[in-house]
Design a binder for these strands. Sequence first.
DNA 1: AGCACA
Length: 225
Amino acid sequence: MLTADVPPNQSIYIKNINEKVNKEELKRSLYCLFSHFGRIHDVVALKTPKLRGQAWVVFTEVTAASNAVRQMQNFPFYDKPMRIQYAKSKSDCVTKAEGTFVPKEKKIMQEEKVERRQHAEETQQPSMPNGATAVNGRPVPSGQDTVPPNNILFIQNLPIETTGMMLQMLFEQYPGFKEIRTIEAKPGIAFVEFGDDVQSSMAMQALQGFKITPPNPMVISFAKK
DNA sequence: AGCACA
């Protein structure tokens, strides 16, 4: 009832998105924010008059989409609560993959005013900053991630000789970085605070699996509230 | 509020 009567779909439809955020940044943020639920096939966002403030995130699994719809419902994203539903139809990237794609001959190009008020980037695929789709060669898990997003990250599996300074060097390059917190009594773990959940997610995605020393790929998750 | 992908 809450999520409208749209049948499950591997693509989710998100609305009530802050329209001021730049399209490419939006796609990157969505990718980061939702990649914890499973592998993402594509993120679609348009800034046309009809479509701004909305976006689609295409998962490879319906179950990932289901978890995303439930867990991220009303998530404060750029100061506005996300409203998430299943998409009404399959995404083109999906039908293309399964060979059932049909080009739209119905709709002729009637509304083509490519709004390029900003830079004309053409990076279509929301690739990750470090190109990582897996941590340590393992696929990104999707089940254990029931911890909701948090502006504070929990870092594990650090070599015991890691210093706060070393961590700061790594994390301060990401927007919104606030501080590193280590615990004397507990080497090997740390907390890293960011301004908000979106920023912490970006850093997590970028540094997930990063090795300060070869045998110690970082394991980053959201801290529990 | 608004369901597209060229």
